[in-house]
Design a protein around this nucleic acid. Structure first.
Lengths: 217, 217
DNA sequence: TGTACATCAGTGAACGCGCGTTCACTGATGTAC
DNA sequence: TGTACATCAGTGAACGCGCGTTCACTGATGTAC
């Protein structure tokens, strides 16, 4: 660890090279999918020999985990930036969509087909709950005016099983809003990004906006 | 092509062996994900040598395509069976959920991360629209009693872009119901199956049922 | 019914490939006196 | 300022592996007369 701003040239170089490896990794994911990611291929593309990269990453797995972490981090930052005090859920929803469309491969690294046997390290799980927290904040602020129950059975269930809310004080209707907000938008997004709407004629954005209208009114 | 019931022993054997290969393929997908699927490994597991399988499949790609086709086919059959006349959308929704939970890998082969560069052959696209048709039937039958507009902007858009409906006579509110039904359920399902709810404490089924209540009333 | 032939299943060797990863080593860069 | 040493970056060879796929071939199964 080095104090920021006091990096040695070598540390700077290391960080820069790690970053370049990751960039190439994303390019490779875009070209052949995450399973086709290969350290050797990245090295070759950067004009160095395979084993050189082992100075920067412990192995293929560490690189992938790093990419996943970065993806989560960027989503969390995006969501946090959109969940400023006073913002409504729709704003958060549009930020999510922009983020997802910006780089579908990044989206799928988080929300795509899970790799059998892979378990994310704990710090990644924490980023995920950071996202949930923003969601709850927004859901609570958004509907604070009208927190009448909208679906009693689900709200009762959520009121009793709110471990995921991690102590967040949102009332049951807000818990429900947050969760359904999330699943509904993910529904449109994942189908859209996976190409299940291509050739169908309509604009997925209209679906998305319709969901935003319904959740926030 | 042979008339059913007039199969020669050899044809019967071929069909049986192809089926066994596919079974092993699913097992392998369950163990290592679709990208790790290997003809050689399947052959070895079946006690034969690698090249033997080339008598039954043109190559790895054909096997995968076949698996995808089977997955689509089984979903379409499930949906069709649930969309009997008089059935409501909720029934179709529950059938979808049962089908998905029955074999998540099968689900992800259709709705998971798309493989860059892969394009499904046309007959698979047709199965997909078969599913859409059932959906539209159910959506139309279900809400026929109250087809008042629920979201004018979206319904207007869908009324003008109904290529996907392939001539189906469903009115705009039913178009909207069908699509949102689909995306909302997929939203819960894909997050649930990818494990994004694990450790959160609540039961995804409650979310799912809440969505069903909202769409069908 | 038996014989001659065609068809098909499966094998084993081989080709070329790329992967992840380890290891001993060279050469450059930074550090301490 | 220069010299001696330690640290680090990157190389090339090597290991073992598994992949998809082709090809010539053996042996069994079915077919025609």
């Amino acid at each position: 660890m080095t104090v920021a701003g006091k990096e040695t040239p070598r540390e700077r170089y290391r960080a820069q090279l790690r970053a370049e490896v990751k960039e190439r990794a994303w390019e490779q994911i875009a070209a052949a999918g995450a399973p086709g990611l290969s350290l050797n291929a990245i090295a070759k593309q950067m004009g160095m020999s395979g084993p050189a990269l082992y100075r920067y990453f412990a192995g293929r797995d560490e690189l992938i985990t790093e990419l996943i972490r970065d993806a989560y981090r960027s989503l969390a930052d995006t969501v946090r930036a959109a969940a400023v005090p006073g913002a409504d859920l729709a704003r958060l929803g549009r930020a999510l969509r922009t983020w997802a469309l910006e780089d579908p491969h990044r989206y799928f690294l988080i929300y795509g087909t899970p790799v059998p046997g892979y378990h994310a390290p704990e710090d990644i799980t924490e980023i995920a709950s950071e996202i949930m927290e923003c969601l709850l904040d927004a859901a609570q602020a958004d509907g604070a005016a009208a927190d009448t129950p909208a679906d009693a059975p689900l709200e009762a269930h959520l009121a009793e099983h709110r471990r995921w809310a991690a102590g967040h004080p949102a009332p049951p209707p807000a818990l429900r809003r947050a969760l359904l907000f999330w699943t509904r938008l993910q529904g449109v997004l994942s189908l859209e990004l996976a190409g299940h709407f291509t050739g169908m004629g309509f604009d997925p954005d209209e679906l998305y906006e319709s969901e935003l209208r319904h959740l926030t009114r």
